[in-house]
Amino acid sequence: MEIQRIVLRHMKMQLLHPFTTSVGTEYDKDFILVEVRDKDGISGWAESVAAGDPFYKEETVKTNWHIMSDFLIPMLQKSPISHPDDVSKCFSPIRGNFMAKSAIEGAIWDLYAKKQGISLATALGGMRKKIDVGISIGIQDHVEQVLDIIDEYVGKGYKRMKVKIQPGWDINVLKQIRKKYPDVPLMADANCAYSLKDIDTLKAMDDFNLTMIEQPLGFDDIVDHAQLQAQMKTPICLDESIHSAEDVRKALYLGSCKVINIKIGRVGGLTESKKIHDLCEENNIPVWCGGMLEAGIGRAHNVALTSLSNFTLPGDTAASSRYWKEDIIDPEVTVEDGMISVPDKPGIGYEPNRDRIEKYILYSHTFHF
Protein backbone atom coordinates (compact mmCIF):
# COMPACT_ATOMS: atom_id res chain seq x y z
CA MET A 1 0.00 0.00 0.00
CA GLU A 2 2.13 2.82 -1.34
CA ILE A 3 0.52 6.02 -0.07
CA GLN A 4 1.07 9.05 -2.28
CA ARG A 5 -0.68 11.69 -0.19
CA ILE A 6 -3.10 12.29 2.68
CA VAL A 7 -5.60 15.15 2.56
CA LEU A 8 -7.21 16.48 5.74
CA ARG A 9 -10.35 18.58 5.30
CA HIS A 10 -11.96 20.46 8.17
CA MET A 11 -15.69 20.20 7.47
CA LYS A 12 -18.74 21.86 8.99
CA MET A 13 -22.30 20.70 8.27
CA GLN A 14 -25.51 21.92 9.88
CA LEU A 15 -27.73 19.30 11.51
CA LEU A 16 -31.37 19.21 10.45
CA HIS A 17 -32.41 19.38 14.11
CA PRO A 18 -30.52 20.28 17.32
CA PHE A 19 -29.37 17.18 19.22
CA THR A 20 -29.39 17.46 23.02
CA THR A 21 -27.87 15.08 25.56
CA SER A 22 -26.92 15.44 29.21
CA VAL A 23 -23.59 16.98 28.14
CA GLY A 24 -24.96 19.68 25.82
CA THR A 25 -26.66 20.53 22.52
CA GLU A 26 -25.18 20.20 19.04
CA TYR A 27 -26.51 22.36 16.19
CA ASP A 28 -23.91 21.52 13.58
CA LYS A 29 -21.15 19.02 13.05
CA ASP A 30 -17.47 19.95 12.86
CA PHE A 31 -15.31 17.05 11.75
CA ILE A 32 -12.18 16.13 9.84
CA LEU A 33 -12.56 14.26 6.58
CA VAL A 34 -9.53 12.12 5.79
CA GLU A 35 -8.58 11.05 2.26
CA VAL A 36 -5.66 8.65 1.77
CA ARG A 37 -4.61 8.39 -1.89
CA ASP A 38 -2.19 5.83 -3.32
CA LYS A 39 0.15 5.90 -6.32
CA ASP A 40 -2.57 4.43 -8.57
CA GLY A 41 -4.96 7.29 -7.83
CA ILE A 42 -7.28 5.25 -5.60
CA SER A 43 -8.61 7.03 -2.50
CA GLY A 44 -9.73 5.70 0.85
CA TRP A 45 -11.98 7.84 3.03
CA ALA A 46 -12.92 8.19 6.70
CA GLU A 47 -14.15 10.76 9.23
CA SER A 48 -12.90 11.83 12.62
CA VAL A 49 -15.82 11.80 15.05
CA ALA A 50 -14.28 14.24 17.55
CA ALA A 51 -16.51 17.23 18.27
CA GLY A 52 -15.62 20.88 18.53
CA ASP A 53 -15.59 20.71 22.32
CA PRO A 54 -14.25 18.17 24.85
CA PHE A 55 -17.57 17.31 26.52
CA TYR A 56 -18.18 13.75 25.30
CA LYS A 57 -14.48 12.83 25.25
CA GLU A 58 -11.33 14.86 25.69
CA GLU A 59 -10.51 14.95 21.97
CA THR A 60 -11.64 17.82 19.75
CA VAL A 61 -11.40 18.69 16.07
CA LYS A 62 -8.43 20.96 16.78
CA THR A 63 -6.55 18.40 18.87
CA ASN A 64 -7.19 15.75 16.21
CA TRP A 65 -5.81 18.03 13.50
CA HIS A 66 -2.69 18.64 15.59
CA ILE A 67 -2.11 14.97 16.39
CA MET A 68 -2.69 13.85 12.81
CA SER A 69 -0.55 16.58 11.27
CA ASP A 70 2.34 16.62 13.71
CA PHE A 71 2.57 12.99 14.78
CA LEU A 72 0.45 10.34 13.05
CA ILE A 73 0.99 11.28 9.41
CA PRO A 74 4.76 11.78 9.90
CA MET A 75 4.85 8.30 11.46
CA LEU A 76 3.24 6.84 8.35
CA GLN A 77 5.67 8.76 6.15
CA LYS A 78 8.53 6.99 7.94
CA SER A 79 6.92 3.54 8.27
CA PRO A 80 5.29 2.06 5.15
CA ILE A 81 2.46 -0.39 5.86
CA SER A 82 1.19 -3.43 4.00
CA HIS A 83 -2.10 -4.03 5.85
CA PRO A 84 -4.48 -1.78 7.84
CA ASP A 85 -3.74 -3.79 11.00
CA ASP A 86 -0.22 -2.35 10.81
CA VAL A 87 -1.56 1.15 11.42
CA SER A 88 -2.41 0.65 15.08
CA LYS A 89 1.04 -0.83 15.64
CA CYS A 90 2.63 2.16 13.92
CA PHE A 91 0.63 4.57 16.10
CA SER A 92 1.14 2.66 19.37
CA PRO A 93 3.81 5.07 20.76
CA ILE A 94 1.12 7.79 20.87
CA ARG A 95 -1.06 7.44 23.95
CA GLY A 96 -4.79 8.02 23.70
CA ASN A 97 -5.99 10.23 20.83
CA PHE A 98 -8.21 7.36 19.69
CA MET A 99 -10.39 9.40 17.35
CA ALA A 100 -7.43 10.87 15.51
CA LYS A 101 -5.90 7.41 15.08
CA SER A 102 -9.21 5.90 14.00
CA ALA A 103 -9.82 8.43 11.23
CA ILE A 104 -6.53 7.74 9.47
CA GLU A 105 -6.75 4.01 10.03
CA GLY A 106 -10.32 3.96 8.67
CA ALA A 107 -9.30 5.66 5.45
CA ILE A 108 -6.52 3.10 5.01
CA TRP A 109 -9.02 0.26 5.60
CA ASP A 110 -11.23 1.72 2.85
CA LEU A 111 -8.24 2.03 0.52
CA TYR A 112 -7.14 -1.53 1.31
CA ALA A 113 -10.58 -2.97 0.55
CA LYS A 114 -10.75 -1.07 -2.75
CA LYS A 115 -7.29 -2.34 -3.72
CA GLN A 116 -8.46 -5.89 -2.98
CA GLY A 117 -11.65 -5.37 -4.96
CA ILE A 118 -13.85 -6.28 -1.99
CA SER A 119 -16.27 -4.45 0.25
CA LEU A 120 -15.07 -3.05 3.55
CA ALA A 121 -17.58 -5.34 5.28
CA THR A 122 -15.97 -8.37 3.63
CA ALA A 123 -12.47 -7.13 4.46
CA LEU A 124 -13.49 -6.95 8.12
CA GLY A 125 -15.01 -10.44 8.09
CA GLY A 126 -18.64 -9.32 7.99
CA MET A 127 -21.33 -11.76 6.90
CA ARG A 128 -24.62 -9.86 7.15
CA LYS A 129 -26.25 -8.54 3.99
CA LYS A 130 -28.59 -6.28 5.98
CA ILE A 131 -28.31 -4.73 9.43
CA ASP A 132 -31.03 -3.73 11.89
CA VAL A 133 -30.98 -0.12 12.96
CA GLY A 134 -32.58 2.13 15.53
CA ILE A 135 -32.63 5.83 16.28
CA SER A 136 -31.23 7.97 19.07
CA ILE A 137 -33.61 10.62 20.40
CA GLY A 138 -32.11 13.62 22.12
CA ILE A 139 -33.57 15.38 25.14
CA GLN A 140 -36.62 17.39 24.09
CA ASP A 141 -38.58 20.28 25.61
CA HIS A 142 -41.65 18.12 26.18
CA VAL A 143 -42.33 14.38 26.48
CA GLU A 144 -44.91 14.69 23.72
CA GLN A 145 -42.12 15.52 21.28
CA VAL A 146 -40.36 12.25 22.17
CA LEU A 147 -43.59 10.34 21.62
CA ASP A 148 -44.09 11.98 18.24
CA ILE A 149 -40.57 11.04 17.13
CA ILE A 150 -41.07 7.45 18.27
CA ASP A 151 -44.40 7.31 16.44
CA GLU A 152 -42.73 8.50 13.23
CA TYR A 153 -39.86 6.02 13.34
CA VAL A 154 -41.89 3.05 14.56
CA GLY A 155 -43.99 3.72 11.48
CA LYS A 156 -40.83 3.56 9.36
CA GLY A 157 -39.94 0.17 10.82
CA TYR A 158 -36.95 1.13 12.97
CA LYS A 159 -36.04 -1.73 15.27
CA ARG A 160 -35.14 0.12 18.49
CA MET A 161 -35.66 3.46 20.20
CA LYS A 162 -32.89 5.01 22.30
CA VAL A 163 -33.82 7.99 24.46
CA LYS A 164 -31.34 10.29 26.13
CA ILE A 165 -31.95 10.79 29.86
CA GLN A 166 -30.60 12.86 32.71
CA PRO A 167 -31.73 13.56 36.30
CA GLY A 168 -35.18 15.12 36.09
CA TRP A 169 -35.69 13.81 32.55
CA ASP A 170 -35.90 10.10 33.13
CA ILE A 171 -38.59 8.19 35.03
CA ASN A 172 -41.58 10.15 33.77
CA VAL A 173 -40.26 10.08 30.20
CA LEU A 174 -39.80 6.31 30.28
CA LYS A 175 -43.19 5.85 31.96
CA GLN A 176 -44.97 7.86 29.26
CA ILE A 177 -43.17 5.98 26.50
CA ARG A 178 -44.08 2.62 27.98
CA LYS A 179 -47.69 3.71 28.46
CA LYS A 180 -48.04 4.41 24.74
CA TYR A 181 -45.56 1.84 23.42
CA PRO A 182 -45.52 -1.11 25.84
CA ASP A 183 -43.62 -3.43 23.51
CA VAL A 184 -41.25 -1.27 21.44
CA PRO A 185 -37.57 -2.17 22.03
CA LEU A 186 -36.39 0.70 24.23
CA MET A 187 -33.13 1.72 25.83
CA ALA A 188 -32.01 4.72 27.85
CA ASP A 189 -28.69 6.53 27.41
CA ALA A 190 -27.48 8.57 30.38
CA ASN A 191 -24.11 9.78 29.04
CA CYS A 192 -22.60 9.54 32.55
CA ALA A 193 -25.24 11.80 34.17
CA TYR A 194 -25.74 9.78 37.38
CA SER A 195 -23.79 8.51 40.38
CA LEU A 196 -24.37 5.76 42.92
CA LYS A 197 -26.25 8.33 44.99
CA ASP A 198 -28.97 7.98 42.33
CA ILE A 199 -29.20 4.22 42.68
CA ASP A 200 -32.88 4.23 43.68
CA THR A 201 -33.79 6.19 40.53
CA LEU A 202 -31.69 3.87 38.38
CA LYS A 203 -33.16 0.73 39.97
CA ALA A 204 -36.65 2.12 39.30
CA MET A 205 -35.86 1.86 35.59
CA ASP A 206 -36.08 -1.92 35.97
CA ASP A 207 -39.85 -1.47 35.75
CA PHE A 208 -39.73 -0.37 32.12
CA ASN A 209 -38.39 -3.51 30.45
CA LEU A 210 -35.45 -1.69 28.88
CA THR A 211 -33.09 -3.45 26.50
CA MET A 212 -30.30 -1.70 28.43
CA ILE A 213 -29.25 1.49 30.17
CA GLU A 214 -26.16 2.98 28.61
CA GLN A 215 -23.28 4.47 30.66
CA PRO A 216 -25.28 5.69 33.66
CA LEU A 217 -22.20 6.47 35.80
CA GLY A 218 -18.80 8.14 35.34
CA PHE A 219 -17.18 8.39 31.91
CA ASP A 220 -14.05 6.59 33.13
CA ASP A 221 -15.65 4.13 35.55
CA ILE A 222 -15.97 0.35 35.54
CA VAL A 223 -15.92 -0.24 39.33
CA ASP A 224 -19.11 1.57 40.39
CA HIS A 225 -20.88 0.17 37.33
CA ALA A 226 -20.15 -3.32 38.67
CA GLN A 227 -21.80 -2.41 41.97
CA LEU A 228 -24.80 -0.97 40.15
CA GLN A 229 -25.15 -3.93 37.76
CA ALA A 230 -25.25 -6.30 40.72
CA GLN A 231 -28.36 -4.49 41.97
CA MET A 232 -30.18 -4.05 38.65
CA LYS A 233 -31.87 -6.56 36.39
CA THR A 234 -31.65 -4.14 33.44
CA PRO A 235 -28.42 -4.80 31.49
CA ILE A 236 -25.86 -2.01 31.75
CA CYS A 237 -24.10 -1.08 28.51
CA LEU A 238 -20.71 0.60 28.67
CA ASP A 239 -19.78 3.30 26.17
CA GLU A 240 -17.46 6.09 27.34
CA SER A 241 -15.49 3.76 29.64
CA ILE A 242 -14.36 1.46 26.83
CA HIS A 243 -11.33 2.32 24.68
CA SER A 244 -9.85 -1.12 24.00
CA ALA A 245 -10.32 -4.86 24.20
CA GLU A 246 -8.30 -4.72 27.42
CA ASP A 247 -10.89 -2.36 28.93
CA VAL A 248 -13.59 -4.82 27.93
CA ARG A 249 -11.72 -7.72 29.52
CA LYS A 250 -11.50 -5.88 32.82
CA ALA A 251 -15.14 -4.75 32.71
CA LEU A 252 -16.33 -8.30 32.09
CA TYR A 253 -14.10 -9.64 34.86
CA LEU A 254 -15.63 -7.16 37.31
CA GLY A 255 -19.19 -7.72 36.09
CA SER A 256 -19.56 -4.05 35.15
CA CYS A 257 -21.91 -4.60 32.22
CA LYS A 258 -23.81 -7.09 30.08
CA VAL A 259 -23.61 -5.19 26.78
CA ILE A 260 -20.85 -3.25 24.98
CA ASN A 261 -21.32 -0.30 22.64
CA ILE A 262 -18.57 -0.23 20.02
CA LYS A 263 -17.86 3.19 18.51
CA ILE A 264 -15.07 2.98 15.98
CA GLY A 265 -13.62 6.39 16.84
CA ARG A 266 -13.80 5.92 20.59
CA VAL A 267 -11.76 2.70 20.51
CA GLY A 268 -9.13 3.86 18.03
CA GLY A 269 -10.25 2.22 14.81
CA LEU A 270 -11.62 -0.80 13.02
CA THR A 271 -8.78 -3.12 14.04
CA GLU A 272 -9.49 -2.59 17.75
CA SER A 273 -13.24 -2.71 17.09
CA LYS A 274 -12.79 -6.21 15.64
CA LYS A 275 -10.79 -7.30 18.69
CA ILE A 276 -13.55 -6.06 21.01
CA HIS A 277 -16.19 -7.76 18.86
CA ASP A 278 -14.35 -11.07 18.96
CA LEU A 279 -13.71 -10.93 22.72
CA CYS A 280 -17.37 -10.18 23.41
CA GLU A 281 -18.49 -12.97 21.10
CA GLU A 282 -16.27 -15.43 22.97
CA ASN A 283 -17.91 -14.34 26.23
CA ASN A 284 -21.51 -14.25 24.94
CA ILE A 285 -21.72 -10.47 25.40
CA PRO A 286 -23.81 -8.77 22.69
CA VAL A 287 -22.45 -5.65 21.00
CA TRP A 288 -23.95 -2.87 18.94
CA CYS A 289 -22.56 0.06 16.98
CA GLY A 290 -23.04 3.50 18.50
CA GLY A 291 -23.36 6.67 16.49
CA MET A 292 -21.54 10.01 16.69
CA LEU A 293 -23.73 12.07 14.33
CA GLU A 294 -21.54 10.97 11.44
CA ALA A 295 -21.89 12.26 7.92
CA GLY A 296 -22.17 9.68 5.16
CA ILE A 297 -18.58 8.43 5.08
CA GLY A 298 -18.44 7.76 8.81
CA ARG A 299 -21.93 6.26 8.60
CA ALA A 300 -20.69 3.88 5.87
CA HIS A 301 -17.90 2.65 8.14
CA ASN A 302 -20.48 1.91 10.85
CA VAL A 303 -22.58 -0.08 8.38
CA ALA A 304 -19.58 -2.19 7.37
CA LEU A 305 -18.58 -2.92 10.97
CA THR A 306 -22.13 -3.84 11.97
CA SER A 307 -22.10 -6.64 9.39
CA LEU A 308 -19.96 -8.71 11.79
CA SER A 309 -21.72 -11.64 13.43
CA ASN A 310 -21.93 -10.49 17.08
CA PHE A 311 -23.66 -7.19 16.33
CA THR A 312 -26.93 -8.70 17.47
CA LEU A 313 -28.55 -5.47 18.73
CA PRO A 314 -29.75 -2.61 16.49
CA GLY A 315 -27.30 0.28 16.37
CA ASP A 316 -27.59 4.05 15.96
CA THR A 317 -26.90 4.17 12.21
CA ALA A 318 -30.09 5.79 10.95
CA ALA A 319 -30.64 7.09 7.42
CA SER A 320 -28.71 10.13 6.19
CA SER A 321 -32.00 12.05 5.98
CA ARG A 322 -32.44 11.76 9.75
CA TYR A 323 -29.61 14.26 10.25
CA TRP A 324 -28.74 16.04 6.98
CA LYS A 325 -30.48 18.10 4.32
CA GLU A 326 -27.92 16.58 1.97
CA ASP A 327 -25.16 14.11 2.67
CA ILE A 328 -21.66 13.98 1.17
CA ILE A 329 -22.01 10.51 -0.42
CA ASP A 330 -23.86 8.96 -3.34
CA PRO A 331 -26.18 7.26 -2.80
CA GLU A 332 -27.14 8.46 0.66
CA VAL A 333 -27.63 5.88 3.42
CA THR A 334 -31.27 4.77 3.37
CA VAL A 335 -33.37 2.58 5.65
CA GLU A 336 -36.08 0.19 4.51
CA ASP A 337 -38.24 -1.60 7.07
CA GLY A 338 -35.75 -0.74 9.79
CA MET A 339 -32.77 -2.22 7.93
CA ILE A 340 -29.82 -0.94 5.92
CA SER A 341 -28.47 -3.03 3.07
CA VAL A 342 -24.72 -3.60 3.41
CA PRO A 343 -23.01 -2.43 0.20
CA ASP A 344 -21.12 -5.06 -1.78
CA LYS A 345 -19.11 -2.61 -3.88
CA PRO A 346 -15.37 -2.24 -3.16
CA GLY A 347 -14.51 -0.24 -0.05
CA ILE A 348 -17.19 1.59 1.89
CA GLY A 349 -19.58 1.08 -1.03
CA TYR A 350 -20.67 4.71 -1.24
CA GLU A 351 -19.07 7.32 -3.50
CA PRO A 352 -17.89 10.56 -1.85
CA ASN A 353 -19.54 13.49 -3.66
CA ARG A 354 -16.65 15.90 -4.17
CA ASP A 355 -18.87 18.80 -5.19
CA ARG A 356 -20.84 18.58 -1.94
CA ILE A 357 -17.68 18.03 0.05
CA GLU A 358 -16.27 21.27 -1.35
CA LYS A 359 -19.36 23.16 -0.13
CA TYR A 360 -18.66 22.29 3.50
CA ILE A 361 -14.85 22.66 3.72
CA LEU A 362 -13.52 25.28 6.11
CA TYR A 363 -9.91 24.55 5.20
CA SER A 364 -7.71 21.66 4.08
CA HIS A 365 -4.10 20.54 3.91
CA THR A 366 -2.30 17.96 1.79
CA PHE A 367 0.59 15.83 3.07
CA HIS A 368 2.79 14.30 0.39
CA PHE A 369 4.68 11.03 0.75
Score class of each variant (00 low, 15 high):
1 M>G: 08
15 L>S: 07
26 E>G: 02
28 D>N: 13
37 R>L: 13
38 D>S: 09
52 G>H: 08
53 D>V: 15
59 E>P: 13
63 T>F: 11
67 I>G: 00
67 I>F: 15
69 S>Q: 10
75 M>L: 14
79 S>A: 09
79 S>T: 15
85 D>P: 00
88 S>L: 03
94 I>T: 13
97 N>W: 04
100 A>Y: 01
107 A>Q: 02
115 K>N: 13
122 T>A: 11
125 G>T: 07
137 I>K: 00
140 Q>L: 11
153 Y>L: 09
157 G>M: 08
157 G>I: 03
163 V>N: 03
170 D>R: 00
171 I>P: 00
177 I>C: 02
181 Y>K: 06
182 P>F: 12
183 D>S: 15
206 D>M: 06
210 L>K: 01
215 Q>K: 12
217 L>S: 06
219 F>G: 11
226 A>N: 00
236 I>C: 03
238 L>I: 02
241 S>N: 11
242 I>K: 09
245 A>G: 07
247 D>P: 09
250 K>H: 07
252 L>G: 10
252 L>A: 12
254 L>W: 03
263 K>W: 13
264 I>D: 00
266 R>W: 02
267 V>R: 01
267 V>N: 02
268 G>Y: 00
280 C>V: 14
286 P>V: 13
290 G>K: 09
292 M>E: 15
295 A>R: 14
299 R>M: 15
304 A>T: 06
306 T>N: 12
310 N>F: 05
313 L>M: 14
320 S>L: 10
326 E>Q: 15
327 D>M: 12
329 I>A: 10
330 D>R: 14
332 E>C: 03
335 V>L: 04
341 S>H: 04
344 D>Y: 05
349 G>V: 03
354 R>V: 03
355 D>A: 07
357 I>Q: 05
357 I>T: 10
357 I>K: 07
365 H>R: 14
365 H>S: 08
366 T>L: 12
